[in-house]
């Protein structure tokens, strides 16, 4: 029921969300990561997302299954974009439907935290000044 998607082009989020509209679901929590205009004070023109795709898919799916086991949710979907995204585009979307809001919030937060910690995806920022840089941030352990 829960699934992790990687997409090379923008996805119709409304469609993914409607799939989570299950009879027992009373609360829905979602998180989106957007490409910001600045990072650490530098003007960003876009971000290039690269993934080690087969492992990213299995690890992303494992995270959703862990979330389903740990929280009283109905279903969860996560979508991560790959490729070059302009400022304002949605890089990641997570949607969680649950009978009650506690589980929806808890699972949604768990999923984004674990994606950032474990899924082999890397972002290379492109700056207005012309350079690029790999964003080194999260602990992988």
């Amino acid at each position: 029921m829960s699934r992790f998607l990687m997409a090379d082009a923008p996805v119709a989020i409304g469609v993914l969300q409607r799939e989570l509209l299950l009879p027992q679901a009373g609360g829905f929590c979602s998180f989106e990561g957007w490409v910001r205009q600045t990072n650490d004070g530098r003007a960003v023109s876009g971000i290039d997302y690269k993934a080690f795709r087969p492992l990213a898919l299995t690890e992303g799916q494992a995270i959703l299954e862990e979330a389903t086991a740990r929280f009283a949710i109905c279903a969860a979907t996560a979508m991560h974009r790959i490729g070059y995204l302009a400022v304002g585009e949605t890089a990641v979307w997570i949607g969680v439907a649950a009978p009650h809001r506690d589980a929806a919030f808890g699972a949604c937060r768990f999923i984004i935290d674990e994606i950032k910690r474990r899924v082999p995806i890397w972002k290379q920022e492109h700056y207005e000044a012309g350079e690029t840089g790999w964003v080194a941030c999260h602990d992988v352990r």
Partner: peptide
């Protein structure tokens, strides 16, 4: 594949 620190999301 060696996995550098990841930075997705």
């Amino acid at each position: 594949v060696f996995i550098p620190p990841v930075s997705g999301g």
